[in-house]
Design a protein around this nucleic acid. Sequence first.
DNA 1: TTCAAATAATAGTAATACTTTTAAAAAAAA
DNA 2: TTTTTTTTAAAAGTATTACTATTATTTGAA
Lengths: 224, 224
Amino acid sequence: MAVHIRFDLNEQLFIKDPAESDLGRRIIEHSILLFNKLGYEKFTFKKLAIEINSTEASVYRYFENKHHLLLYLVSWYYEWINYLIYANLINVTEPKKRMQVIIQNIVEASIQNPLIDYVNESLLHKIVVAEGTKAYHSIDVDEENKYGYFRSYKTLVKFIADEIGKYKPDFSYPKSLASNMIEMANNQGYFADHLPALTDVKKGEKCNRQLVKMINYFVFKILE
Amino acid sequence: MAVHIRFDLNEQLFIKDPAESDLGRRIIEHSILLFNKLGYEKFTFKKLAIEINSTEASVYRYFENKHHLLLYLVSWYYEWINYLIYANLINVTEPKKRMQVIIQNIVEASIQNPLIDYVNESLLHKIVVAEGTKAYHSIDVDEENKYGYFRSYKTLVKFIADEIGKYKPDFSYPKSLASNMIEMANNQGYFADHLPALTDVKKGEKCNRQLVKMINYFVFKILE
DNA sequence: TTCAAATAATAGTAATACTTTTAAAAAAAA
DNA sequence: TTTTTTTTAAAAGTATTACTATTATTTGAA
């Protein structure tokens, strides 16, 4: 059975919906590959166009610029996490267990079943870890926030904050803990890979398991 | 009495030491102003050169490119925090009180006495909060780490981790808690200003006080 | 089949991120 | 003080980036 999902991303993130055409889907697919290969700074629409045997001008018909493309990918990622968490929480009622499922999904999203053929979720996760903060660390953050460009991330934070509220109703910092859980998962994973002096998590296959364990430890200490 | 301090930054961060010439100091002073005004992406050496009545080529004699300039500024900032913490911990012996001083300094660094006339520490703090993660979120992070470009940040994390070790010797995650304290202070402050849905800290004059209180709460809950 | 939309191909512009050369000015050494 | 070296300013130049515009061709829906 194939499950068909279409995330409702903010329509101002793109000029023409990339999910709706073959070229659009190739843009998404190969931008994920190329962002991973080159990093955000060295990625250009020209190079992407060459990869997909198309032209710069055609790519520009889908996205205003590479910043918008990054915003699209990051939003897609958080929509996907929202979906995964939602799906994995069905039938889980105990608040503590629900928090554990959330942490698991934030960290290990990449090893879940891929959902959409043209999106390599594992590589997308790497992009979010390595480049994700660039989406909102921009001089135009306030204006972009007005346009709702960060809605998917905010939705996830709100959801987690509400779960924290269920677990401990009198807790004073649900939103901060929620956003810090996500940021910490991303950061500490990145540090394990690239700046090991900044983390106790060791690089390798069990990296994610350590991360899950650590974030669980932190979160339940704070909430106890 | 004037106190003269000269931070020993990694010499590979610059081509020619900006602290040692008038033009160099003007480059630092105005790059802090211009990064604040334009943000990292729109900042260029050309625009900086115009501000300081010099030329692009002259700026290039000090820094390889704007990424290195950002690395220099971020390193300078963390050297400064290291210094402030060191100075404010003299005569503080109780481990808990020492942790509190550290948290205070991470968050409120900007309101301490300015140290060097050509560095606006308050604006520099804003740059670190808004653009600091771009220093190490780069495709060249591994190579740059080998060159020791992140030494100042790592020194600070190591210092805090050691203090955590003094406070609670059997704690499993001293480095992760230390780096998360810094990242959290920066992030949550940025969110309060720009993405309030992601934090419980309210914007305004008491923002830093709330931040200090919250981070104290988190840290001592985790370490209790 | 026709008509509209999407794409490819091509070209072009302004700005960016540099490098190079030369000359003038300033600092250091003799 | 003069000479030498270093630093800076001025000017010009290049490759790449980040776009925009135009036109021809292809594709897909009515």
